[in-house]
Design a protein around this nucleic acid. Structure first.
Lengths: 333, 333
DNA sequence: TCAGCTTTTGCAAGCGTGTGCAAATGCTGC
DNA sequence: GCAGCATTTGCACACGCTTGCAAAAGCTGA
């Protein structure tokens, strides 16, 4: 166990022949230090390998510079893409990301938020799950900011970033009909998160408005394997659908693979497929999936700029548009 | 701006009618508190919404509980899978992950490590890039632990976790030959990281030992698109290879897609393909990629257990075995 | 030279916690 | 009741930093 501690401002001050305040001021922007003192401090700091202790600084300033990202299923293409964008933007704004994985049990979002409080995070971004109201209230009361992404909650205080899921669903229904499809289906998981359900309900409603019924099938969690299972369920029915909207791209990939390799169907000739998220794999040529693009960069930008803003912004919910990316899994276009 | 601060141990002490030390001891394991004082403190803390300030605790104990994960290309399947495993294991051990994204410029690994020092991280895990010696020395001198994953560096102090890349390459060369292939190729990116080069050199050497030459082609960064480009380069030669080992699964997916859809070749009948990493997509039925599995769970377990161990362990480098996962992209088996 | 002003500097208090030490408390056995 | 002991409690200092305040230093113009 190495007993040597990090070098402190005190030691730098002694070496530079100035007071401890001077070295502190050298490292705080907007403080009053004369150029030559500043230089003496900088030299001494460099020589000693001094780095400001952000734990102590956070303690004093009551602002840690930490932002908590609370997320499950980190290994998933969409989640990891969003994570990438968020960490990037946070770092650009001088913040640092604390990553909390909530894969294990339910209620672990609350645990995660507690961790955020312990480290006095300036803000938390929730990508999955929905925390208990009591605990978000605690966060907000103490000036900690909160961003909910695709969570569709109605409480006051946090910034909510949502997509126009229902509208997108309606657009894809129209596209299917225009491609000549009449037997519509929706492939979903059993996760039941707000955005997934919004897509499902929006699709069913839009189809109804067009005079069509929708067969809805749900299975397991939101991944490739579930897509295969749902395909199994939908394609063994007496009447096969000729168009299926999958709640996410992962489901769509699983669905397409099963349709092609297990049921020897041709996409899009015999069945049209659409997805949601526009993960990297969607444009791989084995899929060429027509899908809605999650605007991850925009989401990250909105979230971070709100987090770091000085004033309390007026509008606490932002609704973003999901662009339809047209590829080859739907006829025509 | 909400001026209310978080509740402190002092306030809890007053409410519970005990001294501040008592509440501190209540929340430090292994401290001496009588059951009834403890209960009074717990009740008061619950009522007030008290949470220990880990910044202050870290300052006192000289142990922040933070572990820095330094990683680039977070959105990539293999990286995000490793990230998932690491955060999971860290949380199980009572640590918390600070995520630093080094996608932008080179040398940003040094910046990242500086950030780790500022927050007095107990340890850093480096998944990409290689920091300057001067800065890793600084980390180590101050008792900060360091783990290098697949970085193949020879300095003393950090834990190095590596795979048997060269051995794996030799095994796959044998498998190709056994499948009747004679015209071998290797598909790589231009990243030139130690593990990629170890696979390349290992493959070339093993082929040579078997009396065969290898055509090596490299392009761009290590992703799907580069796989396609390399396929372009390899499959337009006068003599097409009949087996190609791709440095990673992403390259392999790109290669297979180009071979099939652009050159109308059949895998594995006309060309055998193997990859490395065993990303989720490798087992998707459009690929069925025969590949080497990165033991992400084991890597994470090794890293974390070393990080949290009390004593300085003796062996500072662990070499893990990559299992060959046999699917359908190589004939026979 | 000095009054009047602005800029720089050092002092010291405080942020919220852990912990060594000595005093206080509780318990046991006579 | 009391000596002898183990356990619990409170005091006070330390951790490394920021910052208000007042003293010191520098600068200008007569």
């Amino acid at each position: 166990m190495s007993q040597k501690l990090f070098v402190s401002a005190q030691e730098v001050a002694e070496k530079a022949g100035v007071s401890r305040s001077a070295v502190s001021r050298t490292f705080t922007s907007g403080a009053s230090v004369s150029p030559k003192t500043r230089q003496k401090v900088l030299d001494a700091a460099e020589a000693l390998g001094y780095h400001v202790n952000h734990l102590a600084r956070g303690l004093m300033r009551n602002e840690s510079g930490i932002v908590c990202l609370i997320v499950s299923e980190i290994g998933t293409p969409y989640r990891s893409a969003l994570l990438r964008a968020l960490t990037q933007q946070l770092q650009n704004s001088g913040k640092v990301a604390m990553l909390i994985n909530t894969d294990r049990s339910d209620g672990s979002v609350d645990l995660a938020l507690r961790q955020a409080i312990r480290y006095r995070a300036d803000a938390s971004v929730i990508l999955s799950g929905l925390p208990d109201k009591s605990i978000t209230d605690l966060c907000l009361k103490n000036g900690q900011r909160l961003v909910l992404i695709n969570r569709d909650d109605d409480r006051e205080g946090p910034l909510k970033i949502n997509l126009d899921d229902a509208d997108a669903a309606a657009r894809i229904a129209t596209a299917f009909v225009r491609a000549g499809c009449r037997k519509l289906a929706f492939a979903n998981s059993q996760a039941g998160t707000p955005s997934l359900m919004a897509r499902e309900h929006g699709f069913v409603a839009a189809a109804k408005a067009l005079g069509l019924d929708v067969v809805v099938e749900r299975f397991g969690h939101t991944g490739y394997e579930s897509g295969r299972v749902v395909a199994q369920q939908l394609l063994t029915r007496k009447e096969r659908p000729d168009a299926v909207f999958c709640a996410t791209d992962l489901l769509a990939c699983g669905f397409m693979d099963a349709a092609r390799h297990q049921f020897s169907m041709s996409v899009p000739d015999q069945i049209c497929v659409a997805g949601f998220d526009d993960i990297e794999q969607a444009c791989w040529s084995s899929y060429g999936l027509t899908t809605f693009a999650q605007p991850v960069e925009t989401i990250a930008r909105e979230a971070v700029s709100w987090l770091v803003s000085e004033a309390e912004p007026e509008n606490h919910t932002v609704r973003l548009h999901a662009d339809l990316v047209w590829r080859t899994s739907i006829r025509g276009g």
